[in-house]
């Protein structure tokens, strides 16, 4: 049983890690805490649902549409709104994205009403027996594999490409990278768009597993913050590890304690982390001080 739970948790955690990588990138580069990150996932899920219900495009094919679309939305939002927040006062930095998340949630409520919408494909209920009586849901497995491939791709992208290097340089020192000729505005726009595109990708991967409803974003945003703080702000390996750990904590506490309490467990972990190790596993010390 415990193997089954841990495996389930890891598979779930893969998708969490993907969302968290987006958030941690945005934070690391722009020093902006994006409270609307979960609402972006919600938007992505609605787009995936819309594509399925009108054009019969399955969620896995929808990845190819949702991800670029969310990239464009992220770029646009950065141009209109987010770039004004860099270096702004705390109150502006926090409450602009809080206001944005209110608008997205209520906008979804106005368009789609509060019903739970889900995508039912033949694949959603399929489970594989991987030996020893351990069952693995097919959507979970696909989501995990794709998440891991994309995370590895992101890691290589940041290490090897020129824009990736510019992003990492900006994370380390904004001033020096400007002096070295990094076009910092482009880096910001690109980072925010990538972070948003990753929420679109995770949304499409989540769609076969979860129903979508307007307030689903809150659950994701808080969970993602727990992951990001756990892994260390701005660290991709940290987000990956944090995501897997939170996934495992979630399935185990849901089984042994009570599904209703599972969030309480990771919020407690979160508060303890903020108190005792605010820099997380791989974070730079002092990064949380902004």
């Amino acid at each position: 049983m415990i193997t089954q739970l841990i495996l389930g948790g890891i598979l779930l955690g893969g998708v969490y890690a993907l969302m968290a990588i987006g958030l941690t990138l945005i934070f690391g580069v722009m020093r902006i805490v994006n409270f609307a990150h979960g609402e972006f996932v919600m938007c992505g899920m609605y787009i995936a649902f819309f594509l399925y219900s009108t054009l019969q495009i399955g969620p896995y094919y929808a990845i190819l549409i949702v991800t670029p679309l969310m990239f464009a939305i992220g770029w646009l939002l950065n141009e209109i709104l987010i770039k004004r927040l860099i270096g702004a006062e705390h109150v502006t930095q926090i409450f602009v994205t809080v206001g944005l998340s209110m608008m997205l949630t209520s906008g979804a409520l106005m368009i789609f009403s509060g019903n739970f919408l889900r995508v039912q494909t033949p694949m959603t209920t399929k489970a594989l027996d991987i030996g020893g009586g351990i069952l693995v849901g097919l959507p979970q497995l696909i989501a995990f594999v794709i998440s891991m491939i994309v995370s590895a791709f992101m890691f290589v992208f940041l290490k090897r490409t020129m824009i990736g290097k510019a992003i990492r340089a900006t994370t380390q020192n904004r001033m020096s990278s400007t002096l070295m000729g990094v076009d910092i505005k482009k880096v910001y726009a690109f980072t925010f768009a990538i972070g948003t595109a990753l929420t679109g990708l995770s949304a499409a991967l989540l769609m076969p597993m979860y129903p979508v409803f307007p307030t689903i974003g809150v659950n994701f945003v808080l969970m993602t913050f727990v992951v990001v703080v756990m892994g260390g702000l701005g660290s991709i390996p940290g987000a990956l590890l944090g995501g897997l750990i939170i996934g495992v904590i979630e399935t185990i506490s849901a089984y042994y304690i009570d599904p209703g309490w599972k969030q309480a467990v990771y919020f407690s972990v979160f508060i303890l982390l903020l108190v005792f190790r605010p820099q997380g596993f791989f974070g730079q010390i002092g990064a949380e001080e902004l």
């Binding site: 709104l81 004004r84 109150v91 502006t92 409450f95 602009v96 809080v98 206001g99 944005l100 998340s101 209110m102 608008m103 949630t105 209520s106 906008g107 979804a108 409520l109 106005m110 009403s113 509060g114 307007p214």
Partner: peptide, 19 residues
């Protein structure tokens, strides 16, 4: 009849004021 309209407007007000 338009559920969520007041929250949408509130979000907009909050966003504009802090900006």
């Amino acid at each position: 009849e338009i559920a969520g309209l007041h929250l949408f407007i509130f979000g907009l007000i909050l966003l504009l004021v802090v900006l």
